[in-house]
Amino acid sequence: MAVIAVKYCGGCNPRYDRVGFVRSLQGDFPELEVAGADAAEPDFALVVCGCPARCVQHEQLTGRQGKFVAASPEDREALCAALAEMR
């Protein structure tokens, strides 16, 4: 089972439901195990920002097969494409 480490921004003023965004991915990718940002050597890293400011620091977060920074629901398609390549 592939592990995806998720780091959220602080959520000071999110433009969309960030937690719901991650939860919906699990529906499309049931083989993925969602873990926290401190997961050891995750297969994939996902940074979920609540707005275009993308202010969260995530340099320390890496995934062995890639990393994606999402900042709106419109990023879902590109993210799903990246996750599908990992299969």
Binding site: C9, G10, G11, V56, Q57
Partner: peptide, 8 residues
């Protein structure tokens, strides 16, 4: 909560 940890 992980979705607020970065600020809190």
């Amino acid at each position: 909560k992980p979705e607020y940890e970065d600020l809190m």
